[in-house]
């Protein structure tokens, strides 16, 4: 459903992406992992239509991405700058639904449903700044869910929350993803997270970013924070991803 064909991007003289080739199938959860500065966020921003790639093409359901596509949502890392502090959680979730031509009452219903799915049924009237980081990111996820995109992009979605919350949110994403059958592209720098969450893990090399490895994750579902992480496939894949990332690291004097 998503085809990224030889995408390159340069910021001035700096080449962030050096020809990325990647395809996502319907309903797949693909984790893009790579060292910081490998252009993985740039890749996500290209898919979201926020950045125009310098070269190559991106097709979503066969249609080239130029503007931000209709059927796409993003969960950003920095929830505090993505949620609108002048709106309640419910209003934040409901705001994008106007576009779908829904009336006030059905927007409200859809927002409440989505908040319930992320376990925030009781917090609909709260403002983002009254919530913990984990709760705020749940609201962001609820906003994306209520929007019912066919492709969900997540940019380091758990990078700013504590470890326990992170695990909760990871499981939340797996659960709702299975429930909605959404296609998800999740960008992270965390190797464990990529293996734990992904149906596939795509490793990007250090800049200019190219695909250094593309691994199927054949771990049993549903995944479990303890059991999955001690599964021998998990351990093997984790090492493999680690090696792929390290193998592409520059020597210290070059960094």
């Amino acid at each position: 459903m998503l085809e990224i064909i030889d995408v390159t991007h340069t910021y001035g003289a700096y080449q962030a992406l050096g020809g990325v080739k990647l395809t996502l199938a319907e309903g797949e959860l693909v984790c893009v992992v790579g060292p910081s500065g490998c252009g993985k966020s740039t890749l996500l921003r290209c898919v979201a239509g926020l950045v125009q790639p310098t070269g190559g093409r991106i097709l979503l359901d066969g249609v080239p991405v130029s503007q931000t596509p209709d059927n796409l949502a993003v969960v950003f890392q920095d929830y505090s700058r993505s949620l609108f502090p002048w709106m309640s959680a419910a209003a934040n979730v409901a705001l994008p639904l106007r576009r779908k031509g829904m009336d006030r009452a059905s927007r409200r219903t859809a927002a409440m449903e989505a908040l319930e799915q992320v376990g925030l049924a009781g917090a609909a009237g709260k403002y983002p700044w009254e919530m913990s980081g984990g709760m705020q990111q749940r609201v962001s996820i609820a906003r994306a869910l209520a929007y019912r995109p066919s492709l969900l992009l997540m940019d380091e979605p758990f990078g700013s929350v504590d470890a326990q919350t992170r695990e909760d949110l990871e499981d939340l994403v797996l659960r709702v993803c299975a429930h909605h059958g959404m296609t998800i592209m999740l960008v992270t720098h965390d190797i464990d997270e990529s293996v734990y969450l992904g149906d596939r893990v795509v490793v990007l090399s250090r800049s200019p970013g190219t695909v250094a490895g593309d691994l199927q994750v054949s771990l049993p579902s549903p995944r479990d924070q303890i059991a999955t992480r001690e599964h021998e496939t998990f351990v093997r894949l984790r090492a493999e991803v680690g090696r792929l990332i390290r193998g592409n690291q520059l020597s210290p004097q070059e960094t």
Partner: peptide, 13 residues
Amino acid sequence: RQHLETAKVFGLS
């Protein structure tokens, strides 16, 4: 900027 990007991604008019 992220507020504006969020608005753009979610297709606000």
